[in-house]
Design a binder for these strands. Structure first.
Length: 192
DNA sequence: TCTTCGATTGTCT
DNA sequence: GACAATCGAAGAA
């Protein structure tokens, strides 16, 4: 299985978000692989995108978004949840792709032990759920996703045809003004 | 199945 | 001091 290269990430985040659908997100917990296929993403692009964390310029929290693509941007929100993003574009061009949902493929027993008693269909169907299932926390912020020694990385997996991918407005950005609020920068595919 | 609502704290104004 | 790229329990239907 091949790991996605830096070139994959150093592009328009819209293209990265679309192409990430069908890829496999892999985490290592206690030396074992825990993985799932990405089926929902959202793109955030630059300081002009008022839904993006970089809208107010560079801060301590969003600093890794200003680096080169192919790095993990993990942040904490709502007082209890971690979110996992892939940094996109080249250095000094803040952009990222939020991974919102995955379909578990490997390490099912580990996920079950973490997520019990929740039903399997709801283990990884939200951005904070997948980070909990894969053990992703702020410690992973800034991790390189292009190295086979990284605790989190993304592998090439399925090729999803365009007719199975839908684009819709992004979720959870109710206070963001138009036109950003309605930009169809969320990508989903039904991989059931 | 759908809707409402409480939880809980880092970050920026 | 306000709000957040949310979750999951509980209650209604």
């Amino acid at each position: 299985m091949s790991i996605l290269s830096r070139d994959f990430y150093v592009r328009d985040p819209l293209a990265v978000a679309r192409d990430l659908i069908g890829k496999q997100l892999v985490s290592t917990i206690h030396g074992k692989r825990v993985a799932g296929i990405i089926n929902e993403t959202e793109a955030y692009d630059g300081e002009q995108d008022l839904a993006c964390h970089a809208r107010s310029g560079k801060t301590q929290r969003n600093a890794v978004m200003y680096g080169t693509g192919g790095v993990a941007y993990v942040y904490f929100t709502y007082g209890m949840h971690w979110m996992f993003n892939c940094v996109a574009r080249e250095k000094d061009h803040p952009a990222a792709v939020l991974v919102r949902a995955i379909k578990p493929t490997e390490g099912i027993d580990i996920i079950r032990s973490i997520r019990e008693p929740i039903k399997p269909s709801h283990w990884c169907d939200g951005p904070a759920k997948l980070t909990r299932s894969l053990g992703i926390t702020g410690e992973h912020n800034g991790s390189d996703l292009c190295s086979d020694t990284s605790p989190i990385l993304i592998e090439d997996k399925l090729k999803i045809p365009d007719n199975l991918v839908q684009a819709t407005p992004r979720i959870g950005i109710n206070y963001t003004p138009e036109p950003w609020k309605s930009m169809p920068w969320r990508f989903i595919a039904d991989l059931s």
